[in-house]
């Protein structure tokens, strides 16, 4: 899978917040082989790079780092945070979150497009956290985004894919754009389903970090992602109403 020209081996991406400890986080990455780690810079940044010790532990994972603008509620905040992230992690990649609703953490589509345009013009490679809205996707692509990250469900809910029709439509409308289902996944089966639908990767955090055994859950997701991808590439059969025995019934008399 190529994202902004970079080859990424794993189609599983993991967030780095809320784990019981950095050691548990590291174990989840090792067992899952996740290829990208998203990192929130806003809250931990503070003065004098006060979160540096934690970021060093993330860097030691040896995976591609995708800083995010989690917690930003306006385009301006998000742009400032992205610039800080570029300095801290020496990357043009930014997962752009502009939150429009404090309770559901739903993206602000207007702020998102505005920030995406500013950041793209500034040389960033933007991964926008968006809804499954096709029009919004179109605007984000026009703003220069080459990857889209539609939600499965609101952040941290674990509800899975709440609008399957919308996600199918989005996938079908932009078949050549790399798309990552981001947020709302609670179980590996939901990740497998996203992959079966043709999404290129999934990104999750809470489902792994808050599991009783984060490393085991991370591995579960990794296997599900792989299974879903294989299924997608294997050209699945079409469902049908009529039963179609896989063994010819004509020879049955001889077997009895």
């Amino acid at each position: 899978m190529r994202l902004y020209g970079t080859e990424i081996a794993s189609r599983l991406m993991l967030g780095t917040a809320q784990y019981p400890s950095p050691a548990a986080l590291g174990e989840a990455f090792r067992r899952s082989g996740a290829g990208i780690a998203t990192v929130s810079v806003r809250r931990e940044a503070g003065g004098e790079r006060a979160g540096a010790a934690f970021w060093d532990l993330i860097r030691e994972l040896g995976v591609q780092i995708l800083p995010n603008t989690a917690g930003c509620h306006s385009a301006r905040e998000a742009v400032t945070t992205a610039r800080m992230a570029r300095e801290l992690f020496d990357t043009n990649w930014i997962k752009l979150e502009v939150i429009g609703h404090a309770d559901t953490l739903q993206p602000d589509p207007f702020g998102l497009v505005e920030a995406a345009r500013i950041l793209t013009d500034d040389g960033f490679q933007v991964f926008p956290y968006t809804t499954e809205d096709v029009v919004l996707a179109d605007r984000l692509l026009a703003a220069g985004c080459e990857v889209l990250m539609p939600w499965g469900a609101p952040i941290g809910t674990g509800l899975g894919l709440t609008n399957i029709y919308g996600l199918r439509t989005l996938r079908a409308q932009f078949p050549d754009v790399p798309m990552v289902v981001d947020a709302g996944l609670g179980l590996p089966s939901q990740a497998a389903m996203a992959m079966e639908m043709g999404y290129d990767a999934v990104l999750l955090n809470t489902a792994v970090a808050k599991a009783g055994d984060p490393a085991a859950m991370a591995e579960g997701f990794a296997r599900a992602v792989e299974a879903g991808r294989l299924a997608c590439e294997a050209d699945p059969m079409e469902p049908r109403d009529m039963a179609a025995p896989s063994t010819p019934v004509i020879g049955r008399a001889f077997l009895e």
Partner: peptide, 12 residues
């Protein structure tokens, strides 16, 4: 519980 070694009291 924030991954930071600063001792600043933040509004948020």
């Amino acid at each position: 519980q924030i991954e930071s070694d600063e001792r600043v009291r933040r509004v948020r």
